[in-house]
Amino acid sequence: MRQGFALASGARRVGALVCGVLAIVEAGWVAQDVSVVGGDGLWQVWAGLAVPVGGAPLNTSVVDAALIGLYVVTAVAAFRAVAAGAFVAVGVVTLALRAPAVLILGGQWDGSLGVQGQLVLTAAGEVLGAVVLLVTVVRGRRVMPGREPSPPRAAAGVAAGLLLLVVAGMMGAWQFSRMAGLDGTEQPPGFFWRTVTGGYLVNALLGTPFGWLSWSTVGLCAAAAVASMTRTPWARPMGIAVAWLLLPLAVPVLAATKLTAPTVGEFGAAFAVAAAVVVALLLLPRAEGPFGWRSDSFDPDEIAGFAGQDTLTMPTFGAYGGTYLDPPPPPGPPPGGAGYLGPGQSW
Rank of each mutant, 00 (worst) to 15 (best):
L162F: 07
A11Y: 00
V242Y: 06
L213R: 13
Q116A: 13
A154K: 15
G114H: 04
A11E: 05
A223M: 13
V202N: 12
P152T: 11
G265T: 13
A155R: 13
R80P: 00
L103R: 12
R98H: 15
A154G: 03
A319Q: 14
A250H: 05
L246Y: 06
M238D: 00
G54W: 04
D296P: 02
L22V: 06
L201G: 05
L70F: 05
R141L: 11
A274F: 05
S297E: 10
G198N: 08
T311F: 15
G157Q: 09
Q345W: 03
L134P: 06
A261I: 07
G85N: 04
P52Q: 05
E26W: 03
S177E: 12
R236V: 12
R178G: 15
Q32D: 15
G39C: 08
A261Q: 14
L42Q: 08
S297C: 05
G55K: 09
T230K: 07
S9F: 13
L113G: 10
P233L: 05
V226S: 07
P151C: 06
R194G: 15
P248E: 14
L245P: 03
I240Q: 09
A338S: 12
A84W: 07
V138D: 06
G107Y: 08
W193P: 01
L325G: 10
P145F: 09
F306S: 13
T316V: 15
